[in-house]
């Protein structure tokens, strides 16, 4: 019983928290991959930027990060739309690898701007350590984690409503299925592309802020999430937002559970290699079924 509670408190819940963060980030990656048809290397930096916007707004206002989140989402979206206009749009008709390269450059440019403006030292989003809430005597869950999981659930529901109930959301899925047919159907590419950036950047900002809320603010935080997010998108099937959500949760859980002492008393995997788990899953998936769990596109 104690072992079970320990498993839930220290492995399962953190796994779900991390998984929700990956899931939100991976939706943006998979939509960009499906609709704009390129692997966006700057997505991690979009997250970082969102976090620093939030941190700055918190210095000048007294509000909770969740209250500030919409404003920092908006700022992040504006920056990303500007980047698209200046650096990605000229390549719409070029081989996609040109945009991948441009995004690789943007990744380092955005990061260097963040490092220049805010410096590289660690910052905290919320001061102090919070006492976990104890439910049913043994279930310990920190209020932070509850906030993150609940907000992630709300955001996933919103994405679901957008994609399944609205015309623009359905058109996004259609374009992700087949850009050529979408064009023949009269679906305007640019409007869908804009919406994709809006959705991707907002979710990236939220995911980044949740991570910063759980841990701290740091200039490399987004880049560290890039690989797990790519892995989640590939695991779920490229171009499949629901797949990306599932993929993100799976990767977050596997990462946390990989250091549980499943056999004997030692962690199954040296926690130092946690970050390699996502990569291993991705490689296995590419070998076994490159179209992913949800049968996405294979390029």
């Amino acid at each position: 019983m104690i072992a079970l509670m320990e498993f839930i408190n220290f492995y399962l819940i953190p796994g779900i928290v991390l998984g929700s963060i990956y899931a939100l980030g991976a939706v943006g990656i998979t939509l960009t991959f499906g609709i704009l048809r390129f692997a966006n290397f700057a997505h991690g930096e979009t997250m970082t930027l969102g976090v620093y916007f939030t941190w700055t707004l918190m210095q000048i206002t007294p509000f909770h990060p969740l209250v500030i989140l919409p404003a920092s989402m908006l700022l992040t979206v504006l920056v990303v739309l500007g980047i698209d206009r200046l650096f990605y749009k000229p390549f719409r008709a070029s081989p996609t690898i040109m945009v991948v390269m441009a995004s690789f450059g943007i990744m380092l440019m955005v990061r260097s701007v963040i490092q220049f403006v805010w410096g590289v030292q660690l910052k905290g989003l919320v001061p102090g350590i919070q006492r976990p809430m104890v439910l049913f005597d043994t279930l310990r869950i920190s209020p932070k984690h509850m906030v993150i999981i609940a907000s992630a659930v709300v955001l996933v529901l919103l994405i679901h409503l957008l994609l399944s109930r609205t015309k623009i959301g359905k058109a996004m899925r259609a374009m992700s299925d087949s850009p050529e047919l979408a064009r023949l159907t009269g679906i305007g590419t640019e409007k869908i592309v804009m919406t994709t950036w809006v959705v991707g950047a907002s979710l990236a900002c939220a995911a980044g802020v949740f991570l910063a809320y759980d841990t701290h603010v740091e200039t490399m935080m987004g880049f560290k999430l890039l690989l797990p997010m790519f892995a989640a998108a590939i695991l779920g099937g490229v171009g499949k937002p629901y797949g990306a959500i599932a993929g993100g949760l799976i990767i977050g859980l596997v990462e946390e559970l990989s250091s549980y002492p499943w056999i004997g008393t030692e962690p199954l995997l040296n926690p130092g290699y946690k970050a390699g788990v996502a990569f291993a899953i991705m490689v296995l998936m590419l070998l076994w079924r490159p179209s992913g769990l949800f049968r996405g596109r294979v390029f």
Partner: peptide
């Protein structure tokens, strides 16, 4: 693993190799 897929996958996998190697060097 990657060469039979489009270039983007190779990009993701090679950036992963760099990261994995960094983990090995540190650990």
């Amino acid at each position: 693993v990657c060469l039979r897929l489009r270039s983007d996958y190779l990009a993701i996998a090679t950036i992963g190799i760099g990261e994995i190697f960094r983990l090995i060097l540190k650990n």
